[in-house]
């Protein structure tokens, strides 16, 4: 199944290392907006495809990075399983490698975990053209530093991810969505109050005056919780549109900022879409970049540009972190080949 082109990739990278030539990692191209422009010779991962190992009973799938996310999800669905972090795809060409390299997670994030939480192992080619393997296919592993999780959301800055091993989970037997009308602040308070109670909540969101709560689990548990929480039954499809940012509240906005803040933070910014119990808020207004970043930072959060114009896509690092990041980059990619400046300008 699929095709293993590791050797070709190693040779290309080793060559670039010798000539100190920058490289631009390309997957399906669905998340091109998420970062500064790529420079350098293209390293195309899409030819490196295939599910290498999938044992539903082990709750683990190992898959080559160029495999389409849709193919991964279809293979899992066939066995009643899923990627529990519900990654957004932003297009059918999305690869699993790009999914992990950007580390994006969907509506279940605060309740079930993030992309990095499900990472068990990784194969990477570092900036010296060395094919390395970290972690593995087991649930617990503390042999050596956790490079698998460090690679997640590193935006290709440390190396080329060629293969990932992910923990997968059974699909919930029952899923229901509740909707009640609420203001944004009421919704955030409600979400956090409920999160402190033992309820099978798997997602929360607020948009257009409606608070949405998703319940997942055993049918009996979901039904009992639905009765306890109250509200109208709504269509489960709302979560897919929120995840892919095609929901009416944000679909057509030309400026879109993702604000990652503490869930209970009170933020003096009008956000038409709030997710993750208040932890992920989407801002579509025209506050100047510096002012926006300052406000978000003041509550312990950070801002990422999804659509529109700004000086920086990602939130700047403080001087100590910036220096450390450059040293870590250097430890993986001493000649600075990979995706230079895409994630943060200093590396």
């Amino acid at each position: 199944m699929g095709q293993d082109i590791t050797q070709t990739l190693v040779e290309q990278i080793a060559q670039a290392h010798q000539e100190a030539r920058p490289l631009a990692i390309h997957g399906g191209g669905t998340k091109g907006f998420l970062g500064h422009d790529l420079v350098g010779e293209v390293v195309d991962i899409t030819g490196h495809q295939g599910i290498v190992n999938y044992q539903p009973v082990e709750l683990v799938m190992t898959v080559r990075a160029g495999t389409p996310l849709a193919e991964v999800e279809a293979a899992l669905a066939e066995k009643g399983q899923c990627l529990a972090f519900e990654p957004p795809s932003f297009g059918s060409a999305a690869t699993i490698g790009g999914t992990i390299a950007t580390g994006l997670s969907g509506p279940a994030r605060p309740y079930t975990g993030s992309a990095r939480d499900f990472m068990l192992g990784v194969r990477v080619i570092n900036g010296q053209g060395q094919a390395l393997r970290f972690g593995g296919e087991v649930m617990k592993n503390v042999a050596g530093y956790d490079v698998s999780r460090l690679m997640t959301a590193s935006h290709g800055s440390l190396g080329l991810i060629t293969e990932v091993s992910l923990k997968v989970l059974p699909v919930a037997k029952s899923v229901k969505t509740l909707a009640t009308s609420a203001s944004a602040n009421e919704a955030i308070a409600l979400f956090n109050r409920l999160a402190g109670q033992p309820l099978p909540i798997s997602a929360t969101a607020w948009a257009e005056g409606q608070a949405y709560i998703r319940l997942s689990g055993a049918a009996s548990a979901v039904d009992a919780a639905a009765k306890q929480i109250g509200g109208e039954l709504a269509d489960n499809s709302v979560w897919a549109s929120l995840k892919e940012l095609t929901h009416n509240s944000v679909a057509e906005q030309s400026t879109l900022w993702r604000l990652s803040v503490p869930q209970t933070a009170s933020l003096d910014l009008d956000c038409p879409l709030i997710e993750w119990g208040g932890g992920q808020r989407w801002y579509t207004g025209d506050a100047p970049e510096q002012e926006l970043r300052a406000k978000v930072e003041a509550v312990g959060g950070h801002a990422t540009l999804y659509r529109g114009q700004a000086e920086r896509v990602f939130h700047p690092l403080n001087p100590a972190m910036s220096a450390l990041h450059s040293r870590i980059k250097h430890s993986f990619d001493p000649k600075a080949l990979f995706n230079v400046g895409r994630f943060h300008p200093e590396f």
Partner: peptide
Amino acid sequence: GESLDAPGLDLMAALIGS
């Protein structure tokens, strides 16, 4: 951080188990 993700690399991952 108290947010569900932080800017930059996931250095918490490097720390835990180190």
